[in-house]
Write a protein that binds this DNA or RNA. Sequence first.
DNA 1: AAGACGAGCAACCGCCATTTA
DNA 2: ATAAATGGCGGTTGCTCGTCT
Length: 342
Amino acid sequence: MVRPTCCDKISMKKGPWTPEEDIILVSYIQEHGPRNWISVPTNTGLTRCSKSCRLRWTNYLRPGIRRGNFNDHEESLIVHLQALLGNRWAAIASYLPQRTDNDIKNYWNTHLKKKLRKIQSSGHDNDSRDNPHHLCPRDGCRVGSHSINVSKGQWERRLQTDIHAARRALCEALLLDKTSPSSLLAAESSSKGSSNNDTGINVQLTSSAYALSTVNISRLLDGWMKKIPESQSPTSAVTKREIVPGDNLVLGGPASGLDGQHSLFGYNHRWSLNSFSGSGRDDQNGIVGIYKDESKPVPTLSMLENWLLDDGMMDQQGHEELIGMSFDDGSNLFQVFRGEFN
DNA sequence: AAGACGAGCAACCGCCATTTA
DNA sequence: ATAAATGGCGGTTGCTCGTCT
């Protein structure tokens, strides 16, 4: 029996979210938390299906999201993890707490896949001749002109080699930067300055969980307010409008292009950081959150590290003998990538 | 200047897993 | 125990914008 989903209901709106809808959703979640999605459309009056609301929240509105501008370390980590885990974007995203699975998936599909292809095709013809399919076969992302025309046994051995190579490469990556995801950000911060390079806004990364969400929300609010003079019913997404240094994250403030008298709420409401502080504040870290992403506990790398360490305890030689092929042969990709990124 | 084309990304779709009644 | 409801995930689509001709 084909079960109609909530999204099948007629009159459910589709397409890009408007800033008004975003605000409604954020307000509702601020009050009730990101749960019971099925009741969200009913309670908010949004003509969106519950699924759409959840996706909008998890992929765009929730606190702590960084968008775009993947740094080298993140790229490298994604490549390693993709080789390790396949296209399990949610799992990969759990190691990059500020990135969404959708964002990582898009980045992989639009940038990294291409990059890999480029790397493989230029200057590594010999390698690819010897190793026609050392790029993740799970993804079907084949590099070079060789088709995957090997026996299942060969393919499985190759897969094992890939996984083994990925483990080793990841292990090296972890050793290079023996840090938690948060210090990863600190490293990025120091390498690129303290500004959030996505927005140009100065954001202390130690308080990124809230600040960045504020940026997200402020961005949409700001863009929306900018649009009001042009049209009373803004429809286009404002997500591409970048906040420039000096934007003060105050709704109706100078950055909005309004004089402060025409606020969203009909009075001079200042949409400051504290506007969203209802659910608590971490004074020590200066983190002010709406709801710290309950649906996605911030992971550490410890699990992965443990796994790597466990593997390290194993008889690697035995492993390789079992696999029956040289280790180096499968790790080329990562060496190449590391070279490319460094 | 305008149309064609490609890249990037937000959002949708469909399937599967888990939870609930 | 079972079916329905809900949530989560990965693949894909289609829109927007920038670049090229």
